[in-house]
Design a protein around this nucleic acid. Sequence first.
DNA 1: CGAGGGTTTGAAGTGCATCAAATAGTGTGG
DNA 2: CCACACTATTTGATGCACTTCAAACCCTCG
Lengths: 248, 248
Amino acid sequence: MHVVPFKKSRIMDAYALVRNCSLFADLSDDHLTMIAENTQHLVEPKGKILFLHGDEAHYCYLMLHGWIKLFRETMDGTEAVFDVVTKGHIFGQFAIFNHNIHDYTAQTIEAIGALLIPTNILQRLVTQDQRFALNMLHHMASHQRMQTDEIEHLALQSAPQRIGCFLLRLCKSARHTHPTESIELQLPYDKTLIASRLGMKAETFSRALAKLKEETGISIKGSTITVHGTDSLSIYSCATCSNQFPCT
Amino acid sequence: MHVVPFKKSRIMDAYALVRNCSLFADLSDDHLTMIAENTQHLVEPKGKILFLHGDEAHYCYLMLHGWIKLFRETMDGTEAVFDVVTKGHIFGQFAIFNHNIHDYTAQTIEAIGALLIPTNILQRLVTQDQRFALNMLHHMASHQRMQTDEIEHLALQSAPQRIGCFLLRLCKSARHTHPTESIELQLPYDKTLIASRLGMKAETFSRALAKLKEETGISIKGSTITVHGTDSLSIYSCATCSNQFPCT
DNA sequence: CGAGGGTTTGAAGTGCATCAAATAGTGTGG
DNA sequence: CCACACTATTTGATGCACTTCAAACCCTCG
């Protein structure tokens, strides 16, 4: 594990990073400082496994840059990718409610930087600080809502629709809210991984993206996709979705 | 809404029911009594919708008997069934972390009895009682683990495997742990609904169950299924599952 | 330039859905 | 107790979506 210790002067950096994470919003300065003082700065190259499904949890991870794949692997080698996360996301924190056991495997898909937060600190805080417990509840609830949507999507949407839904989420995180304006998107990681993230094979992804282009008029040039207004995507993808337009 | 008010003498009944629910375990007598005093006894016939996806949440429901289907419906009429719950289960409680909006629809599939618990009481309690907040965290976490498994199963298991997994859960809730003994199971609700619960059509369920019989040697007589040892089921169903034998 | 991974394309197979119809099971009123 | 209506379940035939296997293409980077 490549840990770069924070110098004293860097503790304020960690403090700022921690405070910006919604999970720690509204904590007292004392608690924020206590967390910041106990973090370490983790740097890892591409392909590194941070922990395995079933491992004892020592840390949770607040991402600074790079991408991480969260997944499970079955005995026969197939993978189920639950999420792919980057800057600003935190993962591994739910282990404190699971006998301190990680519920999935985490692997870097490119070089990353992250803040390591010891789980025992979270464990202590959650029993001592009512506000943190409430933050954690809201944090878990929002995670749960996303999982519920995920289940619905897996059950009801076709492959092209799931891609459309994924693109809509990209539009949203690019703060693109106007439903008729054009927006140029960069796929955040390679198509093979997006395919796994959406529960399909790379070949299916390729064909499904072509079909999505046909159906909604998006333009595709390598990993650059131009959406000429999100309306057509919403109509096509959210047709079999119980949420309102747009579903994210 | 058919509410049968508790007589004063029945408050102790409600008290006992509430205390037995793990979500309220370890609460102080005062708080348990306060909850019990504010509950109502709900009785509803078959087919009744308790609330719709998107409705404002006034109550959560502690089941006494009967079965409830929790699901979402898309515009084109297809359903995604998330769960089917009965005696001892509680649902609707997560709305307090979702702007007091229910996240799915709840409908009776046969006559039910339930304890109605006002959500505003939970909302107050979760901010005032540290222990309740912690209970709620563990409760949500265990719900989340089940959802995570659900996503993995939908992504990786075939229809016959999902049925096998469902039967294994039935074995487990019948406290049948010995892996080589025979056990006779009653399907808890009709096959059409089990099919929806497992994300497949009734026809597929019928054929998949026949295939499961072929593969694992279970016996089927109407809604009675005899499992001659859970080993063969585990081996067949958990082959594409990341969890240990058995996965539940 | 050449190696290797990512991506696309084609051909063939599998699994589940759909549509249609037969069968079994259940509760009803006579 | 029976005939009927209605629903649940099974079975068959067919179609579609996604996968699998194989090969070609493309792009990047040493």
